[in-house]
Design a protein around this nucleic acid. Structure first.
Lengths: 160, 160
DNA sequence: CGTAAGTATGTACGTCCTTCATAGTAAGCA
DNA sequence: TGCTTACTATGAAGGACGTACATACTTACG
């Protein structure tokens, strides 16, 4: 290994580590939903939709996931083709399209949950509940930090 | 949020959280190496090569990264096209190709390190050194867990 | 020697994600 | 009211990562 200043080394290593960890999770997830053919990005959208009864607009889904709205449009396309999701016009804004989960989508999530939880439990084997809790919180803090940074960068980028 | 059994909920949420976190890191990394045009997968290979003076074979790189060897071939292609990496024949096995980092590659890594560390420091703002340490360790444990699981799955998959 | 296994790579493909361009709609202001 | 500006979703095009399968070459083992 190359040499670093103390704290920066740790941050650098942690960055690399979280990348491996995410790859690991992704791989297990793929294994869990194997055959039922839903891919990572689409799954994110579906899970987000499953947490509410109201529809969510494409733009809001994009902002929530931190990706472009064009991307979400595509993911919703595939989910809709599979019948897991449905587009309905927004009664309050005719530009907007609300996406809601269908009963088939709910069923898919239910079927996905059990094996996914088992896989996750296997992945987090050896973690104490406290480990799990702090780990989750640190991850979320990382995500919010990034959101804040992205906003900041966007601001200083748009007014040089 | 939907309802879960206690521990499984946490594992499920932690899985989602690490995905966001990794996306966050990835985005900052992209921002850091902007213009210098190296992408995530290639960067992983380059970093791995920068940690040793000897060449590493395509297959070993693939196993270390947990990806297919075909994929590594492609990544090495682009790195070689940019002059950051070089293929040399393995003197001990004429099937194998060793990949080594060039001086230009070393220089790239050096140039990348500083802004990357700054970005990481910004990302991990608010983390105590202990947070950072446990976070990194938990991530690595996750990765090793996945490796073990993958091996296990491969074994039971190949002898049904 | 001959067969089996390992190596890198060609071909083909799927998914994620992006940017730019476009048509429809909303909102603010003369 | 009409005009301009901004926002919405989407079409088109493309880059990058990753996979599986087939192939040619080399090694190792019987």
């Amino acid at each position: 290994m190359t040499r670093f200043a103390n704290g920066d080394l740790l941050a650098f290593e942690a960055g690399a580590a979280v990348r491996s960890a995410s790859h690991a999770i992704e791989r297990m997830r793929a294994h869990g939903s194997e055959g039922r053919g839903i891919s990572a990005g689409a799954l994110d959208v579906l899970i987000r939709l499953s947490t509410t009864d109201r529809g969510i607009s494409i733009g809001d889904l994009a902002r929530a996931g931190g990706v472009s709205s064009r991307n979400v449009t595509g993911l919703v396309d595939t989910l809709e083709r599979d019948g897991l999701v449905r587009r309905v016009p927004d009664p309050e804004d005719r530009r907007s399209v609300l996406v809601e989960i269908t009963p088939a989508g709910q069923a898919w999530i239910e079927a996905f949950r059990k094996p996914s939880q088992l896989a996750m439990r296997a992945m987090f084997q050896g973690f104490t509940p406290e480990d799990l809790l702090t780990f989750r919180d640190l991850c979320l803090r990382l995500a919010t930090n990034q959101h804040r940074l992205a906003d900041h960068l966007r601001q200083i980028g748009s007014q040089p």
